[in-house]
């Protein structure tokens, strides 16, 4: 295996890891807790920008061709911690929007719109993050210890990404399997009934938003440390749609499904198109990509709404349980729920 192939594989691993981490965050928010955060990509972007401007030197450096806030030139791991923190804190103002008063599709729209306009704002207001051009020359973490251009650096980065992804998976799985996770699923099912048995729905939603936001922010930091630049084109509202597609294909409500979906849709799919030679007018292949992603969503929603890896029924140990009287079909998670007014 020559170096070029190795570089390619490690790149795949890093991208895949970032996608997995982001999808896990959304899986916890949307799949388990039923929180409709269709602006999820904003949190990844916030993390990426935070990590970038925390690790970049002041914007007067490098010939002052970029304009951005902060520029504190902080070493790893501070930018990553900052990114996770910002992602979490950013979620707090949105909890009001995600309260019960709005119908769930209205909430979805509000979050989508927020993503669209956040993108427009950052694009137009250059002093924040250098507008449409975005921030570049973002320092690679630990560049002083290992040469960022070497293969060793790739291996280390892969290792870190895999470790973070694994840790995220284990933590989320522990949460979901616990009574806390059960109350989140109850909330997803019927938040009015959940409140009536004592669940503080608003508080839990806030907590889950903050948790998911932090995870998203961290994934952004990991990505920006690798590709060393970040611009509005990387986080259009459509990127959230890719993540939603990943969850629908992989399977909502369980984290293995999220991992599978992340590997199949954002990673597998976008990598597959790399091998298709560009044909037709320019931009045809990316456009077709989106057509196929949209079609994947519709196909799965119709034929297999539970996804590739359905949410498992949780059987609780009872000595005296006899044969279940009904053939329990795994209920697709997107059927009508009683929470919609």
């Amino acid at each position: 295996m020559n170096n070029q192939t190795l570089f390619y594989i490690t790149t795949l691993v890093v991208y895949g890891g970032v996608d997995v981490i982001a999808c896990l965050g959304l899986s916890m928010q949307f799949g388990v807790a039923g929180v409709v955060n269709f602006g999820f990509i904003i949190f990844q972007a916030a993390g990426a920008y935070t990590a970038a401007v925390l690790s970049l030197p002041s914007d007067r450096a490098n010939g002052a061709f970029q304009q951005y806030v902060a520029g504190l030139h902080l070493p790893f791991p501070v930018p990553w911690i900052g990114a996770a923190a910002v992602g979490g804190v950013l979620a707090i103002p949105f909890t009001g929007l995600l309260s019960r008063r709005l119908r769930t599709d209205n909430t979805a729209i509000a979050m989508l719109v927020t993503a669209v306009i956040a993108n427009a704002l950052i694009t137009n207001y250059r002093p924040l993050f250098n507008g449409a051009a975005g921030v570049s020359l973002v320092p690679a973490p630990l560049a002083s210890a290992i040469d960022p251009l070497s293969l060793n650096y790739q291996y280390v980065y892969c290792g870190v990404v895999i470790a973070v992804a694994l840790a995220t998976f284990l933590v989320l799985r522990r949460l979901t399997a616990s009574p806390y996770g059960r109350s989140l699923r109850a909330m997803r099912d019927n938040d009015l009934a959940a409140a009536s048995i004592g669940t503080n729905v608003r508080g839990r939603r806030t907590a889950i938003l903050v948790l998911g936001g932090s995870i998203a922010g961290l994934s952004g930091a990991i990505l920006v440390g690798y590709i060393n630049l970040w611009a509005p084109s990387a986080w259009t509202y459509q990127e959230t749609v890719v993540l939603i597609a990943a969850l629908i294909v992989g399977g909502l409500g369980n984290h293995i499904g999220a991992v599978v979906g992340a590997l199949v849709v954002p990673l597998g799919f976008e990598e597959a198109t790399r091998y298709i030679p560009a044909f037709g007018p320019p931009g045809l292949v990316p456009a077709l990509e989106w057509v196929i992603i949209g079609s994947l969503i519709l196909t799965f929603l119709w034929f297999r709404p539970q996804g590739l890896v359905p949410e498992r029924r949780r059987i609780l140990g009872l000595a005296s349980v006899r044969n279940p009287s009904t053939e329990s079909v795994d209920l697709p998670s997107l059927k009508e729920s009683s929470t919609d007014a």
């Binding site: 409709v36 119908r103 769930t104 599709d105 979805a108 729209i109 989508l112 459509q238 749609v241 939603i244 597609a245 629908i248 037709g280 007018p281 931009g283 045809l284 456009a287 077709l288 990509e289 989106w290 057509v291 992603i293 949209g294 079609s295 969503i297 519709l298 929603l301 709404p305 997107l334 059927k335 009508e336 729920s337 919609d340």
Partner: peptide, 24 residues
């Protein structure tokens, strides 16, 4: 009896398909 969320995703996906078909 798809939920409101499902329908919104359906219309969103449809919009993306149409827009990108035009782009193509």
């Amino acid at each position: 009896k798809a939920s409101h969320v499902t329908l919104i995703i359906v219309t969103l996906a449809t919009g993306i398909i149409i827009t990108n078909a035009m782009l193509g």
